[in-house]
Amino acid sequence: MSSFLPPSRVSLPLLACLAWMALPGLAQAKDTDSNALGFKAYEKGDYKKAHGLFEKALKQNPDNAYARLNRARTTTLLNKGKEEVGTFDYCDYGSNWIFRALADLSRAVELDRAVVLPKIDEDAKGLKALKARSEYKKWRKAVSVLAGEAGGAEKVIRESPEWLFQAPRDIPVFITLKPDKKIIESRPPEDEKPAGQWSLKGEQLMFTPEKGKPAAWKVITEKYAFNEGQDFFFELQLVPVDAETSASGWLSGPLRMGPLEGDCE
């Protein structure tokens, strides 16, 4: 008599589970399919359908860098021009399509910068309206520092004269680095006033205030979080290399320059 016993019905779910585990790529299939189907709809010009599929892909896998990039494209295409309507609330981060698209691009760059960033730079269709905006251009400068691109911080500083300092519950201070190396400080609605001199030393910025010692500053890329910390976009910051406890006001840093324009604090 054979000692072989056929598998019971109870073991079938276990066998199915083992078969699923043996196929590591299968668990990602739905996610990949949603993004791929969305891209097909996108190429056909059905942006609304594509957007829904990209959102489905991100619900299944929030770390899908390609779906992030693609959703930024359809967010732009479906919402461009709305910022020109009188009812548009620029400071409503959840409804501002510019910030939503930049948040997806920021997360995509964070997840797979080497692959995603060239695709962003080459895009002339989905991101066209976003790329025309100053918010995107400032965001791209922040990404250039993050990626360590040619020219680096020195190029960014030379091309970025306007910076913002804003302490909690305080009036914003605007710092301008003039071509003649003067630092101009302005607090609306007051007039501008000189605040010192600036110079470049390699990739460091040297500030010599009207009163005080010269100090070295550096440019870095940081995240600006919004929607209660659920989203972010990249921005540039100027920060003192050696923070002095005696420094006050804008000399304590950081100075910010990023997609957010205006006072939304």
Rank of each mutant, 00 (worst) to 15 (best):
F174M: 09
S248Q: 14
C264G: 06
R71K: 12
A215V: 00
C264T: 04
L255M: 02
K213N: 07
S2I: 01
S246R: 13
D46K: 13
K141G: 08
P188S: 14
K178W: 02
S144K: 12
E43L: 09
F174W: 05
G25I: 04
A150Y: 05
Y93P: 09
Y224C: 02
M21V: 14
R71M: 05
F234Q: 01
G212D: 03
N35Y: 13
K211G: 00
E235I: 02
G86S: 13
G258K: 05
T76I: 05
Y42W: 07
V116S: 02
V116R: 06
G81V: 13
W163S: 03
G196E: 05
V10Q: 14
R169T: 06
P168F: 07
C264H: 08
D180R: 07
S246A: 15
N64T: 01
P172E: 12
Q28G: 06
R113D: 12
P240V: 01
G52E: 14
N96I: 15
S11M: 11
S248K: 15
K138D: 00
A72G: 05
I171D: 13
L111A: 03
F174I: 05
G212Q: 03
E55H: 07
G126Y: 07
E192H: 11
V85R: 15
K218P: 04
P168M: 09
R187A: 11
W163Y: 05
P214I: 04
R68E: 11
L18F: 15
L200F: 08
E210P: 06
T221W: 09
V241R: 07
L127Y: 09
F232Y: 13
K125E: 14
K223T: 10
R9H: 11
A103R: 07
K30H: 10
A153V: 14
G148V: 07
D31H: 10
E210K: 15
G148L: 07
E203F: 08
Q197C: 01
E135N: 13
G258I: 05
A215C: 00
P214K: 06
W139R: 10
Q230H: 12
K178C: 01
A19L: 14
G253C: 01
L105M: 10
W20R: 15
G25C: 10
A153H: 01
L177N: 04
A153C: 05
L15W: 15
A67D: 03
A27Y: 08
S246Q: 13
F234N: 07
S160C: 06
V156I: 14
D33L: 14
V116D: 02
Y136V: 03
P172G: 12
Y224P: 00
A65M: 05
L127D: 03
K178Y: 02
G258L: 07
Y224H: 13
D231I: 02
G94T: 11
K56E: 14
W217A: 01
K48P: 01
P62C: 07
L5K: 14
G196N: 09
P118Q: 02
